[in-house]
Amino acid sequence: MRTTITVNGEARALDLDPRTTLLDALREQLRLTGTKKGCDHGQCGACTVLVNGARINSCLSLAVMHDGDEVTTIEGVGTPDRLHPLQKAFLTEDAFQCGYCTPGQICSALGMLAEVAADIPSHATPDVAAKAALTDEEIRERMSGNICRCSAYPQIVAAIRGAAEEMA
């Protein structure tokens, strides 16, 4: 099926088997291998990308359903020469060991910070009618869809907190 998806600002025309997930289209067709396949069932978050600004699991979405959408992957977040504040903070805080979950963690954190700014409550928000503050508890709860098998969680929370302060 003919599908056009704008990936990291560039319109990409694809001809896809309808079974192709957004994750496989990014990795196998567009060769953007920064986005990782972990569990392939929406449980680990390694495949997290932003679609029209919102974070989703790209493994649980059909690419043909994203015709006309704007997708941002880790390759569109920053480059080795121009790191995004979140990428810098992950380095500074040593927020990974093997690094496999990191692209998903960073894309998820980007989406998550936008959700907090957009006044979206979470399970850690004491009063769901009020705007949430970016506490460590909020970061941990909102990032629960991203698993780090090396268990760098304290450093990941610190990196996100640090980057959020710099981005503010």
Binding site: G42, G45, T48, A54, R55, I56, N57, L60, S61, S108, G111, M112, E115, P121, S122, H123, T125, V128, A129, R142, M143, S144, G145, N146
Partner: peptide, 19 residues
Amino acid sequence: YPVLTQAIVSGASGQLRNK
């Protein structure tokens, strides 16, 4: 309907709730 918001945010993950 705060009970509805509380129920929704107690389920799944941020990524899944966006979809």
